[in-house]
């Protein structure tokens, strides 16, 4: 794909609040996306940090604070093409300011959440599965002969396509966001988008919860021949019941107004106590 085509649409329309230089900043600030990766919300800080140049331009005061908080939610996808959802979010936030009557701010969250899974699916298999393995094949075969080109080619084979795609993703995402969203708005289908995106978003969030939340009880039940353990029994009733119960409990506590920080440390404490007394595995 020619990068001219990708960046053209932005430059055509001079009335936009978000300019090309802002999107370039988003690209640069997307580079340390995983620098603050954590167990709790993974890439959330990086996402907010990368989008800040756009948010700063669009909002002031309380609105800026709200926008920043909005982008501090859980996010995780392939870091190398994170600019694609970032571009779409930038376009949506811009729309919220240009056309506050029709824009729905929760759509920003649902759309970006809906994209986590599909992007990670394609991205992880392309970057980790294909490109890295290609780089490893070329790099190690030279390195094992003591050739300095081994490590050098290893980095180039991976990072040249990586940075090109990362750069283009910003504009591709933004253009898709603006053109797609204005088309939807014209047809009066914004509500349908929100509906469709929240279906995808919640299914992806549900499946990621099932994949990433682990809780295994280590409590023996019964003695002798019939001895088993509680986890096996629970799994027989409903697989994954413990992680789901934990999710439900945390959700309920948040609704009750318990702050996230104490919850983090309670969960950490439960993990350490569980290991110390052996009731969790």
């Amino acid at each position: 794909m020619n990068s001219k085509i990708v960046t053209d649409i932005v430059t055509q329309d001079e009335n936009r609040i978000v300019e090309k230089k802002d999107l370039k900043k988003v690209f640069l600030r997307s580079i340390p996306m995983e620098f603050t990766w954590n167990y709790e919300r993974q890439m959330h800080l990086g996402y907010c940090y990368a989008l800040l140049p756009v948010l700063k331009k669009l909002y002031r005061g309380k609105d800026l604070a709200d926008a920043m908080t909005r982008h501090m939610e859980f996010y995780n996808t392939t870091p190398h093409i994170i600019t694609f959802p970032l571009g779409i979010s930038a376009a949506q936030e811009e729309k919220c300011v240009e056309d506050p009557e029709h824009a729905d701010k929760t759509t920003v969250s649902t759309v970006k959440t809906a994209m986590m899974g599909p992007i990670a699916g394609i991205g992880d298999s392309f970057f980790w599965g294909t490109l890295r393995i290609l780089a490893t094949g070329i790099g190690t075969s030279l390195a094992l002969q003591g050739n300095i080109l081994g490590p050098i080619l290893y980095l180039l084979v991976f990072n040249v396509p990586h940075f090109i795609l990362r750069y283009m993703g910003t504009f591709l995402g933004y253009n898709l966001g603006t053109s797609f969203l204005s088309k939807l708005e014209a047809s009066g289908s914004m509500q349908l988008l929100t509906y469709g995106a929240s279906i995808i978003g919640l299914m992806v969030a549900g499946s990621m919860t099932a994949e990433m939340v682990y809780m295994t009880l280590n409590i023996p039940v019964g003695i002798g021949e019939t001895a088993t353990d509680l986890q096996t029994i629970l799994d027989g009733i409903l697989p994954g019941i413990m992680p789901l119960a934990l999710f439900g409990l945390v959700y309920w506590l948040l609704k009750k107004g318990v702050k996230p920080l104490p919850l983090t440390f309670i969960l950490m404490g439960v993990g350490i106590l569980g290991a110390a007394f052996g009731f969790l595995a």
């Binding site: 709790e40 919300r41 939610e73 919640l202 969960l267 950490m268």
Partner: peptide, 16 residues
């Protein structure tokens, strides 16, 4: 172990 528990908080916040 906590590494398996803490994501529950992240997803609960997202779900909210």
């Amino acid at each position: 172990i906590a590494g398996g528990l803490i994501p529950a908080l992240g997803f609960a916040m997202l779900a909210q």
